[in-house]
Nucleic acid binder design. Sequence first.
DNA 1: CTGAAAGCGCTTACAG
DNA 2: CTGAAAGCGCTTACAG
Lengths: 345, 345
Amino acid sequence: MRKRTKATSIDIAHRAGVSQATVSRVLRGSPLVNAETRRRVEEAVRALNYKVDRHASSLRTQRSGTLALLLFEEPTPDHAHINPFFLSILGSVTRACARHGQDLLVSFQQLSDDWHADYEDSMKADGLILLGYGDYRLYRDKLDALVAQGTRFVRWGAVQPDQPGISIGCDNAHGGRLVGEHLAALGRRRVAFLGSASRGYPEFLDRYRGCEAALQVAGLALDPALQVDADSSEEAGYTAAMALVERGQPFDAVFAASDLIAIGAIRALAEKGLRVPEDVAVVGFDDIPTARFTNPSLTTVVQDTARAGELLVETLLKLVKGEAAESVTLPAQLVVRRSSGAAAG
Amino acid sequence: MRKRTKATSIDIAHRAGVSQATVSRVLRGSPLVNAETRRRVEEAVRALNYKVDRHASSLRTQRSGTLALLLFEEPTPDHAHINPFFLSILGSVTRACARHGQDLLVSFQQLSDDWHADYEDSMKADGLILLGYGDYRLYRDKLDALVAQGTRFVRWGAVQPDQPGISIGCDNAHGGRLVGEHLAALGRRRVAFLGSASRGYPEFLDRYRGCEAALQVAGLALDPALQVDADSSEEAGYTAAMALVERGQPFDAVFAASDLIAIGAIRALAEKGLRVPEDVAVVGFDDIPTARFTNPSLTTVVQDTARAGELLVETLLKLVKGEAAESVTLPAQLVVRRSSGAAAG
DNA sequence: CTGAAAGCGCTTACAG
DNA sequence: CTGAAAGCGCTTACAG
């Protein structure tokens, strides 16, 4: 392999007949530089295919121009099995980073790992984006540690009044309400909930409570006997739905806390001889790409992932610059497809 | 927000009562250092929560300790829609990077973007991992440019004799053969192929040819009239299957070039009143997580993504160190589920 | 508008 | 085994 000889700003300076400092000014876009000087430098930069050395620049400025995204995947040790919903946020985060001229370091972590004291101290990144489901109670202490260290971070997740740091999240309660209203309007009376509706999973809990509130308005209840814990995977959805059927309690609708859970549940219901949506209406949450192609297609709640990624990056960059920033709750929206039995495609 | 004051190696040196050079030796694991000295330094490092500044270190050593993964997503401009198969490689790559003490920069690119001359010159990364489907012919020129520049990179994709650089790929031809044999053994006579089987998509083409070869052994043909182009998405699979049915040519099996295509195809077939697997057997490729939960569950070909990620990283690190490295083809394996109509779960 | 110079925080030959 | 010193390639006050 050919040895690479990188051009430095000194090479550019020689070629353009200016000082190295001037080269640096041009590359940083300083307004001081004479137009003709600028032109000569830019010409030399092109000719030598010069790129500013990121490390030298960062060392000098004490800014890395890099954000780190940590993706937690607590329950499942199976790498293949990352929730596509997070993937779609990851996609929009990479795009937002590109727009803002930031590089993105990505790392998958266990919630239990020692991630809370690394990236920023080693200057690898100016700030952290935290993403992932997992028991919030495990999480909480680490967030407190981040705040105590002064680490700049933004988290995707439920916006709660007492939480450490800043979150960007979806209006899960409203999403749940939409589902409850939809099922009630379709005449479903006994709605089951598949997902861990506890304080450890605030997003799921909010979805649960939102649905419950809507059902109450319709004179219905979300019977705790029809709730089964599940983390966000097809596997867990399948197991939970099997358990639900075996409880023997009648139900005519399933609100799955995520699309993956819904997909597993549909499979389990089919195996138990229950028809979706005739016998059981099924509604998910997230609107992952596959939701349109399940059989039957899945009624679900869309979260605006494009906006989410943009907001995560923008908010974090504000913190990095020392500006004020605040948590944001994004709206949720119902998408009606065939699995809930409404008259829709 | 509290102002962060980072400890430097000088702070550690003071506290441990040694020179800054010795601190550096301890942190780089130099064998020269006295055990007691080492202990004192380590103690100071812990006490001050010191982390080596990555940029200073990289500037000095001219090594960034970072790899960059570029993910191409040519045909679909929809960020939400990254092939889960690549996601699973991404997952195993991040893990492999962690094991090798490398950071990973991730960027989603259009095949047409200007990615071929950036990461390495700016020292952001020591090497590149290239991932993604897309027209290989568009790709080819850029790969040549990378080689000419001396950029170190490894590509996930078909291993071909004349290609620039190094690839890690799956034995697509063998995978295709397994599918052909499976369908022939089940008595299917008219096998359709959904996917772009052209020189621009060497993976798909290899799958096509492998299947064709196996069918020929069984005295059957892969009728070109039953081939419909599709890139790797549910959408494309749906559209392609619709087009196939409308051609009016009889067929009793579909080999979809990827699981996403298969999922879209199953949906289309159902809408056209064709039963899977009774009327049409469907087989995919990739074994994405959802494949076990489609309705019916999907017979497909597994690629070893865990090994793939490990090999991509290991091979790239060899190149970075200036060692010899070579392309590798990984084995493919058939997973029989219900969509092909065999007697399996 | 431009140049000379200091310094960001490390690593590593060199000398002892 | 350890320290003093040079230098990686930039950025930015400072002086002109």
